[in-house]
């Protein structure tokens, strides 16, 4: 068990070594978001901005305009939450090469409660022109995604989570009755649901839809054609999130029955991550129910009923 933020912190050290253009900006949470080691080793490329996230985003825009690759790192409710205006105007309007890293996202944030659980960050970043939005599923993929976005020119958002979660090496591919598209550590729930469904004779495929913008349209279109039914799973508001992005695309190109697992237009509260996810309907049981519901709808459509 390792956390995504540790994977990110590890990648920063690799980037610090190999790319002198990489800078790190932080708003007084360096221990928690794993920028401390970078700060110690390359103090000349580290800017402690204090608890001032709006200015931090502007500083990053200035650094990027001067040819640097700044990583802006703090909790997602503050960045891109509190400083969304600066992300829009100072960074995205100018298409500057700023990397926004939002830590502590979703109900997985846990005991800190409602105010600190970023459940809207995907929605507010993917709606901005020029942005790339990436949601890695585990430590290793967070590490690799960090290295990748450093090489892609343009504004990017990387979504991290707080707790230690399992490494998810292989995703099940049992068949084409339903496609389960997940993102982030919840892919473990998707994996478990697919295994249990398989034992019940329902054959699904689980796919990691980590690149929410730009969407992998070829992959999504193929899944829609092959399976004819899609369940999306995310630790984020259903509105504006990953499932929403998939639905927007498919509605215009290849509509198929869909179910979305995610936060249903509510705020969270304090609790353990697993308790919160369960309370708000983001669970293996709910994914299985969604697969069964959507299978019935798909079959009804095929039979000309409904």
């Amino acid at each position: 068990m390792k956390s995504l933020r540790d994977g990110f912190g590890q990648a920063l050290l690799e980037l610090g070594e190999k790319n002198p253009k990489v800078w790190v900006l932080d708003a007084d949470v360096q221990e928690s978001v794993r920028t401390l080691e970078f700060a110690k080793r390359w103090p000349e490329r580290y800017v402690e901005c204090g608890v001032a996230e709006q200015n931090m985003m502007g500083i990053a825009a200035g650094l990027a305009a001067a040819g640097k690759i700044p990583f802006v790192v703090t909790y997602a409710v503050f960045s891109p939450g509190r400083n969304w205006d600066q992300l829009r105007v100072s960074v995205c309007c100018s298409n500057l090469n700023v990397k926004v890293v939002g830590a502590h996202t979703g109900l997985m944030t846990g005991p800190d409660g409602m105010t600190h659980e970023a459940l809207e960050d995907i929605a507010i970043t993917r709606v901005l022109p020029n942005m790339l939005v990436e949601v890695p599923r585990d430590y290793e993929r967070a590490r690799v995604a960090t290295l990748e976005i450093a090489d892609i020119v343009g504004p990017s958002y990387l979504r991290l989570t707080r707790p230690e979660t399992v490494e998810i090496e292989k995703l099940p591919n049992y068949g084409d009755e339903v496609a389960i598209l997940g993102c982030g550590p919840l892919l473990e729930f998707c994996r478990q649901a697919a295994e249990e469904l398989h034992r019940e004779g329902i054959e699904t495929v689980v796919v990691d839809n980590h690149r929410i913008k730009p969407l992998d349209k070829t992959m999504i279109l193929k899944l829609a054609r092959d399976c004819g039914a899609i369940v999306t799973v995310e630790d984020h508001q259903k509105m504006g999130g990953m499932g929403s992005a998939v639905a927007e695309f498919l509605a215009m190109h290849y509509p198929v029955p869909m179910e979305m697992i995610g936060m249903d237009d509510k705020f969270g509260e304090s609790g353990k991550p697993e308790e919160l996810l369960d309370k708000y309907g983001i669970s293996v049981i709910k994914i299985k129910e969604a697969v069964k519901t959507i299978t019935r709808r798909k079959n009804n459509l095929k039979g000309g009923e409904n």
């Binding site: 800017v47 709006q54 200015n55 985003m57 502007g58 500083i59 990053a60 825009a61 200035g62 650094l63 990027a64 305009a65 001067a66 040819g67 640097k68 700044p70 205006d85 600066q86 105007v89 100072s90 309007c93 100018s94």
Partner: peptide, 19 residues
Amino acid sequence: NTGGPLAQGLSQAVGRAIA
């Protein structure tokens, strides 16, 4: 710089100066 919404230019200027 992209400017208009007040206050955003100064932060960018400071970022450039730091660079």
